[in-house]
Simulated scan of single mutants.
Amino acid sequence: MNWNKLNDPIDIENFMDLFGGFHDSCLKELYMWTETFVDEDLSMSMSVNLDTCVRVLFQRQAREPSAIELLFKGVTHFHIHPREDGQDSIVYGAKLVLKEGLFYWAEDEDWQIDQPFLHPVSWISAKEVHWRDASSWMGEEQRYGVLRDEKNL
């Protein structure tokens, strides 16, 4: 699976057309990491760069592709708003825009950059966005890791 980088509004438009604007999709999984870590000798190693990255797996009720993975690099904001009990988690349509050097993805077509918390939706902004076809990752199987001791919860 090769990564495709989004560079400009034309790339965004083509990608959104390819994935149907995220219509009837769901955010299946996500994984976040940084370059910061504590070594075995307990010394801390950290980057002075914008080093937060997020991978997100989306599945949808359509083919070609039926699943995609987004990679956000240089994340500047990450806001996840889970649905309340009794509400579905379907993404009916999403927004992806490039503004002033940052890419913004939101799970609502009506979401506005200048009022990001007006509506309770998940959204993310980052310096780079890459995507790849993950259609072979359909179904309930977890791709980013399994909670090994969930029986002990």
Rank of each mutant, 00 (worst) to 15 (best):
S45Y: 13
D85R: 10
E100P: 05
S66E: 03
L30A: 10
L57Y: 05
R60S: 03
S136C: 01
S45G: 06
P120C: 04
P82R: 09
G139Q: 00
R148P: 01
I12Y: 09
S122A: 02
P65D: 03
G101D: 04
V121Y: 09
Y104H: 08
E128G: 02
V75F: 15
M16C: 08
D51H: 13
L18G: 05
M16A: 07
R63I: 12
L18C: 02
E128V: 01
M32P: 13
E109V: 15
L102Q: 11
R132M: 05
E150P: 00
H79E: 13
S89Y: 15
K73E: 14
L153V: 01
D108I: 11
D39S: 07
K99R: 07
A94H: 14
L30S: 04
E150W: 15
V54N: 10
F117Y: 02
Y144R: 11
L27R: 12
V129G: 01
H130Q: 14
S122L: 00
D88K: 10
E109T: 09
I12M: 14
Q142L: 04
M1C: 14
R55A: 04
C53T: 08
I90L: 08
C26E: 09
W111Q: 02
D41K: 13
L71P: 05
K73M: 12
W123V: 03
K73H: 13
G74W: 08
E84P: 04
D11S: 11
A106E: 01
F72E: 09
L147A: 03
L153E: 03
K5N: 12
G101H: 01
S89F: 02
V129M: 11
A134E: 07
G139S: 00
M44N: 10
W123L: 08
G74K: 09
Q87M: 15
F72A: 08
L50A: 09
E107W: 10
W123Q: 01
D17K: 12
L6K: 06
V91P: 12
F103G: 00
W105P: 04
F15D: 12
M44I: 15
G139R: 00
H79M: 05
N4Y: 00
R60H: 14
L118T: 06
W137C: 02
V75L: 13
A62L: 14
R132V: 07
P65C: 12
H79T: 08
L98C: 06
R132G: 02
E141R: 08
L147N: 06
H81V: 15
L57V: 08
L42Y: 15
W123H: 06
L18H: 13
M46N: 10
E100F: 02
S135V: 03
I80C: 07
H23Q: 05
G145H: 07
